[in-house]
Design a protein around this nucleic acid. Structure first.
Length: 858
RNA sequence: GGGCGCGUAGCUCAGUGGGAGAGCGUCCGCCUCACACGCGGAAGGUCGCUGGUUCGAAACCAGCCGCGCCCACCA
């Protein structure tokens, strides 16, 4: 270490992440550690595909956790010597991005239609050029060691080719088709959306009862609805086939009020006899259930609400042009006038809303593209059932399977401009549909010469995301990257996109590469606001990870997030981040102590003293445990075990024990303590690096004998030869005795600075005497005032006799309690008879020990 | 309606059959020559409730109470 470095180490008494992180990260970047050679096989290499964040996104706490997890996994494998590729990129995020740019345009007073499709899309690309890299830069501040040099985007040229290859293949297989079908129409984004993008919310509406007169009869059928305006599109009334009340009416007709249309009265099991009057109006054009009933019974499908959310001409001149809400008022008023409104009451029920725009879904029949999923799902269910893909925690595997077993067709077309435009062309003249990866050479129909028109729609964003693990590696080209890194190893994500994304990646991976895209799916915690609410910007409950990095450092945030994560949802706790900051600082200062006193020592394990063997044993056990926890995706315990080792074993005990040897050893030519400390520190830094990369790399830079930068130094494997149960037992006993003595001193009112006179017949480890400030005073003839373990405390001016007496009585009482407990247990014949022998023996030993200690106290 | 998860110290959470734990917070004492982002010590819990299984239950089973999430076509 040169003088300048040494001076810096000497004067920096607090670890300063702000000064370190940018510099260290730049070093990794310049040396290209994040980009592996595309060689070898996927089995020997390690790869993870990042859940590509939306280009519109900014880093939130969930990204913070998920990317810390992935970086921890990736760094560990890189240190373990594997070629590691962490695929990085962003998602074009159709609706989200289009909305952002539309909003920006509106600010300029421009409607996207004024720009036209081409102009608008160009504008979005410009936006992406300018702002799309933000979240990527934010990931770097977290310490993400991903392959940024080969960043991908779901609208890259090659990626688009993959999307079209898949679309065409599924079309040719008959799985993708175009149909007039009921869809979730989102008036907000003015597009159809998939079932998964719909969320149901409890809403209070009014339930209206309407009387439908039966034709050629004086009877009426009263139906109930929360959407009276849709009655204009009714094409039947249904009753339950088992309902005695209406049995005779089935097959007859009733007359639709206001419209006068004759509606068949049909029987269908779906109708609940107990609800309302047991008669249900059927509106196949505007209700998903009614749609299915309608298709089953071959009913006419009438649409009165258009994609603009307004009543169309079919609704009749009285209503045409009104919004659905306006039409509702008008219909209710008209029904009342006609005397057909027989009741209205408040009604709470669940209503679909768009997850994208937040607006209430308008169910409509629309001509859309769909993908049939059941056939694709089958093998994807099998691979999870057979354990080829493992979910952690495993309950998510069951959730996955439940959904997959009941999977429904997926509406993949979206009425947007930003995205993968469908590779579909129509000839309006001869009604030919051309589905092709590349635009037809001629813009004329081959069969009739008519003009070709391309489908205006784009694909659901998740259609392209589903291809991410292989399309991001260059598929459908046979690239070296694909060969070296597909399939990937782990997919880490939050549970909310298991269906939207994880399931679809598994299906597409199997379908197109004939191989599962990853072997492990880790579903991490959702981090809630400290008050238990959802974290969100709009609620004002969001916590900005970048601010936490600014104030505590990236390592602190990483540690905190890992430590608070769990197999369930957790509340954000800044205390855990502070714990991480404290740990970084502790590592830094422990390292200063070691490095500044190491002299010429080189890292070499020492087994000279029992405490040396003890710390080596503790270290290797920690290495083993942390490794196991990481293997099990149990990051919290890995982090906390690391913390415990550094604070307790290494700093509180070992460093304090060996300080005299560290300071004075060199005078006697003994460098063993320094050498051992360097060895332990080196392994500790390596073990901690995947979790806390910055501080560990920074300290590593001061280590003598380092071979490379820490990011590519070997990751420690537990050396079981260093496990030493005897040393552990001996030092543990000494520690326990030290703590007893300290406790005793404190309660007996002995001043912290003063030494306590004592004597003992046993051999006591010097660490006890020093750390508990005990002065052995020969045999002495004074009567002992107390005994703590094998140590007899001798009278001195420092002792407060009353406190001592009280302390002794307290100890006695505690021991008596323990004796009673053990005696009671052993007196229970059934316990002695039924409990395992070692448990019973253990109780006997305890009883003897407590009795002996009680004896000593008199 | 179905399913999943949770209820343990003031707070956030570990602990899943043999003597209730951690971090933070609180209290007491220490600027002890690595670190006050520190060191030493302490207090603090009918482990949601009720039954059951067991020699033994915070843990296993059942029921109940409370909270959260997911799925679902009762208008």
């Amino acid at each position: 270490m040169d003088a300048g470095r040494r001076a810096k180490l000497e004067e920096t008494t607090r670890y300063d992440p702000g000064e370190v992180e940018g510099r260290v990260y730049a070093g990794w970047w310049e040396r290209g550690y994040f980009t592996p050679e595309a060689e070898g096989t996927a089995a020997e290499n390690y790869s993870i595909a990042i859940p590509p964040p939306n280009v519109t996104g900014s880093l939130h706490i969930g990204h913070g956790l998920n990317n810390t997890i992935q970086d921890t996994l990736v760094r560990r494998q890189r240190m373990a010597g594997r070629r590691v590729k962490w695929i990085i990129g962003t998602d074009h995020a159709g609706i989200a991005t289009q909305s952002v740019v539309e909003k920006e345009l509106r600010g300029e007073g421009v409607d996207r239609h004024e720009l036209g499709r081409e102009g608008f899309v160009e504008r979005v690309w410009e936006w992406r050029e300018q702002y799309g890299g933000r979240i990527i830069e934010q990931l770097k501040r977290l310490g993400v060691s991903g392959d940024f040099a080969n960043e991908r985007f779901t609208l890259d040229e090659g990626y688009v080719a993959a999307v079209y290859r898949v679309f065409v293949a599924l079309y040719e297989k008959g799985l993708i088709y175009r149909d007039n079908y009921m869809v979730n129409w989102d008036p907000g984004s003015h597009s159809a959306i998939s079932d998964l993008e719909v969320e149901n919310r409890e809403v209070e509406d009014t339930l209206f009862s309407i009387a439908y007169p039966v034709a050629d009869s004086d009877r009426v059928l009263t139906v109930a609805t929360v959407r009276p305006e849709t009655m204009l599109a009714d094409t039947a009334v249904a009753v339950n086939p088992g309902d005695e009340r209406y049995r005779d009416l089935v097959g007859q007709h009733c007359i639709l009020p206001l419209v006068g249309r004759r509606l068949p009265i049909i029987a269908d099991e779906h109708v609940d006899v107990g609800f309302g009057t047991g008669a249900l109006k059927i509106t196949p054009g505007h209700d998903p259930n009614d749609f299915e009933i309608g298709r089953k019974h071959g009913l006419e499908e009438i649409s009165v609400i258009g994609e603009d959310g307004r009543m169309n001409d079919v609704a009749g001149s009285d209503y045409e042009g009104l919004t659905a809400a306006e039409a509702q008022q008008r219909v209710v008023a008209d029904l009342r006038t006609a005397g057909a409104l027989s009741g209205e009451e408040p009604y709470v029920h669940s209503v679909p809303f768009s997850h994208r725009s937040g607006q209430r879904i308008e169910p409509l029949i629309s001509l859309q593209w769909f993908c049939r999923m059941d056939e694709l799902a089958k093998p994807a269910i099998d691979v999870v059932r057979d354990g080829e893909i493992t979910f952690t925690p495993e309950r998510w595997g069951r959730v996955y399977r439940d959904w997959m077993e009941n999977i429904r067709p997926w509406c993949v077309s979206r009425q947007l401009w930003w995205g993968h435009q469908l590779p579909v062309w129509y000839c309006d003249h001869c009604e030919t549909t051309i589905v092709a990866e590349r635009e037809p050479d001629r813009d004329q129909c081959e069969s009739c010469g008519g003009a070709l028109r391309r489908d205006e729609d784009v694909l659901d964003t998740w259609f392209s995301s589903a291809l991410w693990p292989f399309a991001a590696l260059g598929w459908p080209e046979d690239t070296p990257e694909l060969r070296a890194f597909y399939p990937t190893d782990v997919l880490s994500t939050a549970r909310d996109i298991i269906y939207l994304w994880v399931a679809r990646m598994i299906m597409s991976g199997i379908e197109f590469l004939d191989e599962i895209p990853f072997t492990d799916v880790y579903i991490h915690s959702v981090i809630q606001a400290p008050d238990g609410r959802r974290m969100s910007k709009s609620l004002g409950t969001g916590i900005d990870p970048l601010e936490l990095i600014d104030s505590h450092g990236a390592d602190a945030l990483r540690f905190g997030l890992l430590a608070m994560s769990s197999s369930q949802d957790v509340r954000f706790s800044e205390a855990k981040v502070q714990q991480g900051r404290d740990l970084a600082n502790k590592l830094w200062n422990a390292s200063r102590l070691i490095l500044l006193n190491a002299g010429d020592a080189e890292p070499t394990p020492s087994t000279d003293a029992v405490e040396d063997r003890w710390i080596l044993s503790r270290l290797e056990r920690t290495v083993e445990l942390v490794g196991e926890r990481l293997d099990a995706f149990d990051f919290a315990h890995a982090a906390l075990e690391l913390y415990r080792f550094v604070y307790s074993d290494l700093c509180d005990w070992y460093l304090e024990i060996v300080k005299p040897r560290l300071y004075d050893g060199p005078e006697h030519g003994d460098h063993s303590a320094a050498a051992n400390l360097l060895h332990v520190l080196g392994r500790t830094l390596a073990m901690a690096h995947p979790l806390m990369p910055f501080v560990t790399e920074e300290i590593w830079g001061y280590m003598p004998g380092r071979g490379s930068e820490l990011i590519v130094a070997p990751y420690p494997e537990a050396d079981e030869a260093r496990f030493d149960a005897a040393a552990e037992a001996e030092v543990a006993a000494a520690i326990e005795l030290t703590r007893s003595l300290r406790r005793w001193r404190e309660l007996a009112g002995v001043a912290p600075g003063s030494a306590l006179r004592a004597r003992t017949g046993d051999e006591i480890h010097p660490l006890v005497l020093r750390l508990a400030r005990i002065e052995l005073d020969g045999a002495g003839s004074d009567a002992a005032v107390a005994a703590v373990g094998a140590i007899e405390i001798l009278p001195s001016a420092d002792l407060d006799p009353e406190a001592v007496a009280a302390r002794i009585e307290e100890l006695r009482e505690k021991l008596r309690g323990e004796v009673r407990r053990a005696e009671g247990k052993l007196a229970n014949e059934k316990f002695v008879a039924n409990a395992p022998a070692d448990v019973v023996d253990g109780e006997r030993e305890k009883l003897e020990r407590y009795r002996a200690e009680l004896e000593e106290l008199g």
